[in-house]
Amino acid sequence: MTEAMIETGQLNKSYGGKRGIVDVSLRVEPGDVFGFLGPNGAGKTTTIRILMALLRADSGSARIDGLDCWSDSVAIKRVIGYMPAEPALDGNLTGGQLLEYLGHLRGGVDQAYLRQLVDRFELDPTRKFRQYSSGNKRKVVLIQAFMHRPRVLILDEPTSGLDPLNQQEFRRLVVEARQGGATAFVSSHVLSEVEEMCTRVGIIRDGRVVRIGGIHDVKDIKRSELTILFASTVPLDVFTTLPDVETAESTAGGQGVHLTVKGPPDAAIKAAARYDIVSVTSHEPSLEDIFLRYYGGVADAAADGASEQVA
């Protein structure tokens, strides 16, 4: 068994009496892009901040590249690119000055590559940080995470605040980093994003890891919601009899239907296509909705299974 690039064992952290994370154990292999999924407040940021030695775990172990995250934090940070969820930097410095400052603190970075990143994300480095929009602030933080070509990327909700074009550019950057041999640990609460970018996934809820596996192993939690409006009334049992349809509700006096579909919506769309369709709306429920509506109280039970999978 190869040595894991990132590994935590029975990691615990509480804030006074409040729950942080409980017995978090996970393993990220070199070259993996590991998606860390969970609803808001689940414990994703706490785990990441322990990996970054910003928080000290109450118990358990956290190692990156074989080194202890707390006692060897300086050595570890030489190989890490970190992007926090809420960037806070000196508002009086320009984006360019901030990148240069953080570059100096890393012992210098390749200026050509840095300029390339700035161009790629179309960041204006001459504006002061406090004058940037939230999206541009994210770009500064994103660029500083990649500018020294780190071997390990720790990214906390990296795409939040970025427009779709820059999200796409970011995903390309992660793929390139992976092709260059980097390992990434990406937290998110958007399932489709993780699905597109990651090779392995861990799901955390209420501070506990409830599931870990390959990206295909967790596809079963994916749901899509379809709202279809027909030109005339359509019987509901057309959809309720389909195997992947979990719920079907009649709307608009029988002329509409709201479906929750597990897995690909192919069968539901084909069934609907037999009738005159006025409109189709589809959206992916948030991970929070998925947990609340489909996982409910079974999360704790799943937590027991998670440790087995890790082991």
């Binding site: 940070k77 970190y82 953080l102």
Partner: peptide, 14 residues
């Protein structure tokens, strides 16, 4: 308090 150490301490500075 305002989180300005987060990225600073993400660099290899003790």
């Amino acid at each position: 308090e305002e989180g300005r150490f987060e990225l600073l301490l993400a660099t290899p500075q003790p």
